[in-house]
Design a protein around this nucleic acid. Structure first.
Lengths: 207, 207, 207, 207
DNA sequence: GATGAATGAGTTTTCATTCAT
DNA sequence: GATGAATGAAAACTCATTCAT
């Protein structure tokens, strides 16, 4: 940590930057990228538009920065969760729980994030996809290795390829989270996230 | 059917409409909604722009019509599949297979469709969501009833609420299809779609 | 001539185009390229700005079109004058007179034209220069050949290279025309344009 | 000279000012007035932009100052050359030579200068023209007087008004210099600048 | 006195929509 | 009824200028 070495000016700049990104996040997730103007973003962040352009060279840059920053945060949290835990089941439990936490604490960015990874991204050129895709793939590979290890150690039945199992657990957790996102009241995210896991493990675990 | 009662004029109009929607679909899925102009759509459909506006009152209307029409098509195909089949397992097999067929035969519209159902839709105002949400919900309820029936008839273990199981099978099939969509070569959609089902059923079915 | 074959629509378009170019010419020569906005040009031409962009794909295109069109007109007039005339002296007389006529009838474009050929053109990229430069060079070569021929036929003394003489007569006529342009009252363009020519010929012609 | 009386502070300021003007000159002649920003100028001169504004009240002021300063330098050099020399021919020779020297040593400012005196100056409001126009006029009058004197002293034939002859020699030297500027290789400025003069004098001088 | 971050007016350009022919 | 020319509102982006530190 060298946060101490940041001058007052630098700390201020960082704060401003965060305020701009926060305003952009709000607007993008409220109204979408194309329906949010740079002027609106600047106004919401309480800066002049010129100041916004001092920090981000154009609208696309602002968007990419925003997405990548959030994506990094998510990825780090998820990967950390996957590393912690005594055995395979514990690691997967940690994963599902961490994902739930991240998701619920970042609702506004989530739709934006999935628009980028799943939706018809408005942004055809984007080298952005690449970066995020890599992170997703890395996560899936890590999960796949956990299943692989579980299968080798005879804790799991090999009901499918380990990569397919990774895909399965990833999509199951997403589905439950979206379900919760759309109707938190009627579709609560399982208080015991293991429910999600169990759907898989019931068929998987060797008793 | 009262197709017989349509005059030549009316049949022509219907054809024109389809051509416009087809052109719009192509462009929207190639370049996204905001990067496709009404002029481009009209040109690709080989109509004057004024004619386009005779059929759709504005760009949003064109978009909504397009999405809803496709969504209806999908929904009908899926619901039909869910109705056919002797027992619960067969119905679910039909569902997974039908979904695969629909998906692969309509690749261009799929991203657009998921942008609408999952992504940060660019179009917040749209009451569009509502219509589609209802269809999705109906499908999920139908699947849930199939699980419910299976559980009641002691064919399935009750490893989770039936709605949750419906959510699970829906998201699993989506996940495998997206995986295939992104890299058809390295992640082929299972030749035997039952693989997807098995991931669930292995833990579910009572032997 | 196939002007007859132009439809009413086409003729209208041509007229509109001319009106836009005329408005642009006025503004550019009044206030310069960078101080004239597309909105101003559109307004002065009595069109909406969108219409202006239907005719010219951007501001630079409008500018280049304007300059090249005028430059072509000048070049054609000058070259024609150089071709007409019995002998060398007559050709040169025609040249000086034609230049005077063109200049005086197109005062507003002249400064613009010289800005492009002489001044620090604002337009660094411009492949525009190239086109015009070629025309100037062609004119100079033609004049040079006239001097060459005059020298060979012993009508002129060889007081300098023929290209230098061409340069000389070109610059002399420009100088007198600019002098007139800046103060038409006190520096009238010689009623007898031969005065300009004489400055050269007095030393040139073999008596 | 009261340079001695300048304090260190004042001398420093003068140096800074020169550095700013030099940077502005470079940029204006490289990219034109409107394509050079105050920020760029400040950066190239290695000052803060605020400092630039301490010295020049705005961009136009900077530009005017620059042009006038250069113009003064040229004017002084030219006038000095015109004063030196035994007789009329020698004075004119000095003029042509001095002009060549000034021109070649200040290539970067020359286009800028001619843009101002000849081109469609981007800057219509500018009372700048006035100042420079006066200097040009003074030079022309001085040259005219030299011709006048030559004519009176029967050294020159009166082939035209003396002012017209001044105009002629001025434009001839410009033309040759521009020709050189555009293609130094193929159109070298006459090693013997008298060639330029001769074009005029051949017809002028009484043998 | 020097600095350079902040400002926002002003510019180019696009495109959904209208309406006269 | 079809057409597509004309419109102008709205968006991205720049940069001269100011002023608090």
């Amino acid at each position: 940590m060298q946060r101490k070495t940041l001058s007052r000016r630098e700390r201020e700049k960082l704060t401003q930057r965060q305020e701009m990104l926060a305003a952009a996040l709000e607007l993008f997730s409220e109204k979408g990228y194309h329906n949010s103007s740079m002027q609106e973003i600047a106004t919401r962040a309480e800066f002049a538009i010129g100041t916004l352009y001092k920090f981000f060279k154009n609208k696309e840059d602002l968007y990419k920065t925003l997405i990548l920053e959030q994506s990094d945060k998510f990825h780090t949290a998820i990967m950390t969760a996957l590393e912690e835990g005594e055995d395979e089941v514990e690691k997967l439990q940690n994963y599902v729980r961490a994902k739930g936490t991240v998701f619920m604490n970042n609702v506004s960015v989530i739709r934006l994030y999935f628009a980028e990874t799943r939706g018809a991204s408005f942004n055809i050129k984007a080298g952005l996809d690449g970066e995020i895709r890599k992170q997703c793939e890395q996560t899936l590979q890590t999960i796949a290795r956990i299943f692989e290890s579980g299968i080798k150690r005879r804790r799991f039945k090999k009901i499918a390829e380990s990569y397919q199992l990774a895909l399965a657990i990833d999509s199951l957790s997403n589905a439950f989270l979206f379900s919760w996102l759309e109707a938190p009241e009627t579709h609560p995210y399982p208080e015991d996230p293991d429910i999600i896991l169990n759907i898989l493990l019931k068929g998987l675990v060797i008793n």
